[in-house]
Measured scan of single mutants.
Amino acid sequence: MDVFMKGLSKAKEGVVAAAEKTKQGVAEAAGKTKEGVLYVGSKTKEGVVHGVATVAEKTKEQVTNVGGAVVTGVTAVAQKTVEGAGSIAAATGFVKKDQLGKNEEGAPQEGILEDMPVDPDNEAYEMPSEEGYQDYEPEA
Rank of each mutant, 00 (worst) to 15 (best):
S9E: 08
V66W: 14
S129F: 13
S9D: 03
A90P: 03
A11C: 15
K58D: 01
N122P: 04
K58M: 13
G84W: 10
A91R: 05
V15T: 01
S42L: 10
A69E: 03
V70E: 02
G86P: 06
V55Y: 12
S42F: 10
A56P: 01
K97I: 14
K12H: 08
S87P: 04
G47P: 01
E110V: 10
Q62F: 09
N103P: 10
T33Y: 02
A76D: 02
E28S: 10
G14Y: 11
I88L: 08
T44W: 15
V77I: 14
S9I: 14
A107I: 03
V52R: 01
E104L: 07
E105F: 07
K97L: 08
E126Q: 03
V40C: 05
P108I: 04
V48N: 00
T59P: 01
K102G: 04
K6R: 05
G67Y: 04
G86E: 13
V15L: 10
E28I: 06
A85H: 04
E123L: 08
E130W: 09
G86C: 13
V52N: 01
G67S: 07
G111Q: 13
G47M: 07
T33R: 01
Y133R: 02
K43R: 14
I88N: 02
A27N: 07
A56R: 09
M5D: 00
M1P: 00
E35T: 10
P117G: 11
V66P: 01
V40L: 14
K43N: 02
T92E: 04
A53N: 08
A76C: 11
V16K: 08
V3C: 02
K102Q: 01
G47I: 08
Q134W: 13
K58A: 13
E105V: 10
K60Y: 05
A17I: 05
G36D: 02
E114A: 03
V26L: 08
V15F: 02
E35I: 15
V26S: 00
K102E: 13
P138C: 09
A107H: 06
E57R: 05
V118T: 03
A85G: 09
G73S: 13
V48L: 11
A107T: 11
V77W: 15
E130K: 08
T92P: 04
M5P: 00
V71L: 09
Q62D: 02
Q99M: 13
K12W: 14
L100T: 07
A19P: 00
T75L: 14
E13Y: 14
G14T: 15
Y133K: 03
S9V: 14
A124K: 15
A53T: 04
V77C: 07
E104W: 05
P120M: 08
E35F: 12
V40H: 02
P117Q: 13
A17Y: 03
L38A: 04
Y125L: 08
Q109A: 02
V118W: 05
A90E: 06
V74E: 01
E139G: 06
E126M: 13
A11G: 02
E131A: 11
E131V: 11
V66I: 15
T33C: 03
G73W: 12
E28W: 04
V63I: 09
G67Q: 09
S42K: 13
Q24E: 05
G93P: 04
V52T: 01
P120E: 06
G93R: 05
L100G: 07
Q109K: 14
G31D: 06
V70R: 01
Q109L: 05
E126K: 06
V26F: 14
G106D: 03
A85S: 04
V3K: 01
P138S: 08
K80R: 10
T33W: 15
V16T: 06
V48C: 06
Y125R: 04
V118K: 08
L100Q: 10
A91T: 06
V48G: 01
P128M: 12
A27W: 11
D121T: 11
V37F: 10
G36I: 15
K80E: 02
A90D: 06
G7S: 15
K23E: 00
G41E: 01
A85Y: 14
V52A: 09
N65S: 10
A56L: 07
E110I: 05
G25D: 03
T72W: 06
N103F: 08
K21C: 03
G41R: 09
E46N: 11
V3L: 06
A69N: 07
Y125F: 15
K60E: 01
V77S: 02
K102C: 05
Y136G: 08
G84V: 13
A107F: 04
Q109E: 11
G132D: 09
G132E: 11
A19M: 05
S129N: 04
V26P: 00
S129Q: 06
A85I: 14
A76P: 02
K32P: 00
A140V: 14
N103T: 12
M1R: 00
A56N: 02
K80L: 15
E35S: 07
Y125I: 14
A91W: 09
E35V: 08
Q24Y: 12
V95N: 09
P128N: 07
E83P: 06
A69D: 02
E83N: 09
G31A: 08
P138L: 04
E110W: 04
A69S: 04
V70L: 11
V77R: 03
K21W: 08
Y39L: 08
A17G: 05
K96L: 09
S42Y: 13
A76M: 06
K32I: 10
H50I: 03
V52G: 01
G36A: 10
K58Y: 06
S9N: 15
A124C: 13
V52H: 01
V55H: 01
A30H: 02
A19G: 02
T75H: 13
E131H: 09
K23V: 05
V82F: 13
Y39V: 06
V37H: 00
G84Y: 13
A30D: 00
V55M: 09
V66E: 01
L113A: 12
Y125S: 06
K96Q: 05
D98S: 12
E57K: 10
A30K: 02
A11D: 00
V49P: 02
A89P: 03
E139M: 08
D121G: 12
D119G: 06
E13I: 04
L8R: 00
K58E: 01
K43W: 09
G25K: 15
G41D: 00
G73A: 15
D2P: 01
D121N: 08
T54M: 15
T75S: 08
Q79I: 11
V70Q: 01
A53R: 05
I112P: 10
P108E: 14
T54A: 11
S87R: 04
T44R: 01
K23H: 07
D135Q: 10
A27R: 11
A91H: 13
A17W: 14
V74G: 02
G36Y: 07
G31E: 07
T22L: 08
T81L: 12
T22K: 00
E46Y: 06
G106V: 05
K45S: 06
L8P: 00
K60S: 06
I112G: 08
E131K: 10
A124H: 07
G132I: 13
V82M: 11
Y39C: 04
G51E: 01
G73T: 12
A76W: 13
A140I: 05
A27Y: 10
A78K: 06
V70I: 10
V16C: 12
S87G: 13
E104Q: 12
V26K: 00
I88W: 14
E105L: 14
M5G: 01
G106Y: 07
G7T: 09
N122H: 03
G106C: 12
N122F: 02
L8V: 04
E46A: 04
D135Y: 09
S42R: 10
P117E: 02
G106N: 05
V70D: 01
E46V: 07
E139L: 07
T44H: 01
E20Q: 11
G93H: 07
E137W: 05
K32F: 09
A90T: 06
N122Y: 09
A91N: 05
V48H: 00
E20K: 03
V37G: 01
Q24I: 10
E35G: 05
I112F: 04
E28Y: 04
Q62L: 08
K43P: 00
E35H: 07
A56K: 14
I88K: 03
E139H: 08
L100P: 08
G31L: 12
